[in-house]
Amino acid sequence: MIWQFNLIILGFLIMAAIMSLKVTDLLSASMIFGIYSFLMCLLWAAMGAVDVAFTEAAVGAGASTVFLVATVYSTKRKSSD
């Protein structure tokens, strides 16, 4: 695995994590969390953990984002922090 590539993805990963925790609109936070999961999946694929990456692509970027959006839809969209 190429460490420069690794570093770029890790940089994006930290940005996505900060954004999803900072943004006050919970729908945006859920979508950015989906991006975070997808970047994580890329990183694992690059590390050679293809099974883990596949699971994360299906579960993290797919199912858990849908669950978060479903909850945000049926509760409140604005967050205080």
Binding site: V50, D51, F54, T55, A58, V59, A63, V66
Partner: peptide, 17 residues
């Protein structure tokens, strides 16, 4: 190939969703 019960199950569930 990569895959198995967990991944296939989640994909099948996603089609229903």
């Amino acid at each position: 190939s990569p895959g198995g019960g967990f991944q296939g199950g989640v994909i099948f569930g996603a089609s229903l969703i």
